[in-house]
Structures are given as C-alpha cells and as structure tokens.
C-alpha cells in the first residue's frame, strides 16, 4: 500500500484534509482535491494509481471526472463515493469504469481494503459491493 499514490476528491475541504492526514499517518502518499476541476488539473500534473471520487460536487461532478479518467488515464482505478446511495449513479459509474462504489460515511480501513482490492484487480468494495 505504501507504494501507491491516491487522489481523494470531495468538495468538503475539511473531509479531504482529515482523510489526507490519516493516509499520511499510515505512510500512504495521498493527495486531496476539493473539486472536479482541481482533480483533473492534478491528474494532468502527476500520476496516480487510484482516484477516490465523490459523485456529487459543484461544477464538474464525479461522474464527469470518471468519464475523463476512463478516456485519458485508463490505467487508473476509480472508486466512487456518495452521500446518499443512488442505484442509478452506481450503474452509470460501473458502466464508465469505476471499480467500486462506496456509501458515506466511508470507514478508512474499509476504503483502504477497497483500494487494495482495486489495485489487485479484484472488483468491489469491502462487502463485495
């Protein structure tokens, strides 16, 4: 896990900052972004193994970012997160290439387990979602 580079994207700045700090404390290279625009900028500037994306954000939403990632950076694994689960978002996300879909609140250990499964080529979240 410590060789991976993660991008965590959510429009709640405090959430992003807390998650990135927790990743750092585990020796994981985590970078935060608080908008779809910022995420796309970071993706252009650097390389990432996994992107964890909030679906609903002002401006460029998670599904739109996912669409760009699938087209331009198909090697990156994408995990979607949402505040209120929507079967439709889940279905669209899967179709666009997301490897897992998690409902908030996301437990960090579950998230990291999902990341590990994603990079090992095993689809689904901690509960096989």
């Amino acid at each position: 896990m410590d060789h991976l580079r993660l991008l965590f994207v959510d429009d709640e700045e405090e959430l992003v900052s807390a998650v990135v700090e927790r990743l750092e404390l585990r020796g994981i290279d985590g970078v935060g972004a608080t908008s779809g625009d910022e995420a796309l900028h970071l993706l252009r500037e650097g390389s990432f193994d996994v992107v964890i994306l909030d679906v609903k954000m002002p401006g460029i939403g998670g599904l739109e970012v996912l669409r760009t990632i699938s087209r331009r950076y198909p090697e990156i694994k994408v995990i979607l997160m949402t505040g209120h689960g929507s079967a439709k978002d889940n279905e669209i996300g899967r179709r666009l290439g997301a490897v897992a879909y998690l409902e908030k609140p996301v437990d960090l250990e579950d998230l990291l387990m999902t990341v590990e499964r994603a990079v090992n080529g095993e689809a689904g979240g901690p509960d096989g979602q």
């Binding site: 709640e12 405090e14 959430l15 807390a18 998650v19 927790r22 505040g83 908030k104 609140p105 960090l108």
Partner: peptide, 12 residues
Amino acid sequence: NVFNIINEMAGL
C-alpha cells in the same frame, strides 16, 4: 457532510 467530517476527525 457534517457527520462525515466529524467521523473522520474522530478517526484522525
């Protein structure tokens, strides 16, 4: 969102 942030900060 507020609960998620508090949850994450408690974890931190």
